[in-house]
Design a protein around this nucleic acid. Structure first.
Lengths: 206, 206
DNA sequence: ACCTGAACACCGTTCAAGT
DNA sequence: ACCTGAACACCGTTCAAGT
């Protein structure tokens, strides 16, 4: 009997199911065997399409990073940084469990390099010395990835009662799970504002 | 024959060897079996001292975090933030492979709570509204952990030649491995300066 | 080209047993 | 209390074999 004309698997289908598993159950919840099972196939079949699990994860990371927007560097550097940082953070927030992969992945792919070039070029065209352009790019990444890591792993757990009385300055109303997303978003905006404000002041002295 | 008066294992010895393994070979290089082997013991013996591998890692994370300095919040808030951020970053830089563990660990332990309380209290005493104190604490953590993640995973790899010509704005002199530590340190200081500068300006408007 | 079954070399952890 | 041997339920990956 002839094999079906379309293969059971393809890279897009593998990525989509893998990402769904990571979103639902964390990075630890993804295994090649379980992924294969959900795709109706045996684990070794996946290796026809991806050479390693890491290559699969990096490919998913690339998909996620493709939504990052560096177009505003064409306008002015501050708007460029702001839009870049916000869209970068939004991409992380959409798939928080992928943050460690994205943060640790080598930024070698064409698209990643093109983005880095747009950032660096935008800052240099705006008059920042190349070394400052590098540092501003790095700093912005710190802020985005740090914020993403924090939301990846909620710092304070559910059992607030344990420490409520003991540490009077820890106003738990600002710490509860319910508010964590809002606090994260506001803290990120505060940091981004203060950072760009400080850079603008520095820019005037160069 | 009587057993030796001192046990082969204790928590401090386990932590110390485990941390050495993580420093040398990364988080993936630490397994309970290999750790036991290096301690001259079988893997299950470790479970007499630590209930899980994660508990062991969290305990090591606590050790590392104990070097973080929040004492300058007694002076003024800006000095407090600066010293806190720098000592925090130094702690991460000493054991970069532990960063994901520290970043993802729930900050529930007594010492972690005491530190968070010192930060929050110091900012509130300096006149920051509690909500701002929370956000400034969170933002500073973003910066430190983001910077630590970046150095945990060097963004650009060794094979610079691949992209040198293609992306003219990526001046690889600023990207090479040799300079990565310096760039990281300078970028962190730049971001910290700009952040505190921006906060100081904001503080005047409240 | 695509998929499978069996296998290799690992994991974290449990548990009954020994001292 | 502390340590061991054997075992359970997993991993990522390879490879010969099938279609």
């Amino acid at each position: 009997m002839p094999r079906p004309s379309t293969p059971l698997l393809n890279r897009a289908r593998i990525r989509s199911h893998a990402l769904a598993m990571v979103d639902a159950a964390g990075l630890g919840g993804l295994s090649m065997r379980k992924l294969a099972g959900e795709l109706g196939v045996q684990a070794p079949s996946l290796y026809t399409h991806y050479r390693t699990k890491d290559e699969l994860l990096q490919d998913i990371a690339d998909d996620i990073m493709s939504t990052v927007d560096v177009s505003d560097f064409a306008t002015d550097w501050a708007a460029g940084v702001r839009t870049w940082a916000r869209s970068y953070r939004a991409a992380m927030a959409a798939h928080p469990n992928m943050v460690p992969v994205i943060a640790s992945g080598p930024a070698r792919r064409e698209t990643a390099l093109a983005r880095a070039d747009a950032v660096h070029g935008g800052l240099v065209r705006a008059g920042w010395p190349p070394r400052y352009a590098t540092m501003i790019g790095a700093s912005t990444k710190y802020l985005v990835l740090g914020a993403a890591m924090s939301s990846f792993s909620r710092g304070f757990e559910d059992d607030v009662q344990v420490y409520v009385d003991r540490y009077p300055h820890l106003d738990q109303a600002h710490r509860l799970r319910d508010h964590a997303d809002e606090i994260d978003a506001d803290s990120f905006e505060l940091a981004l504002d203060a950072f760009i404000h400080g850079l603008t002041a520095l820019r005037a002295t160069l």
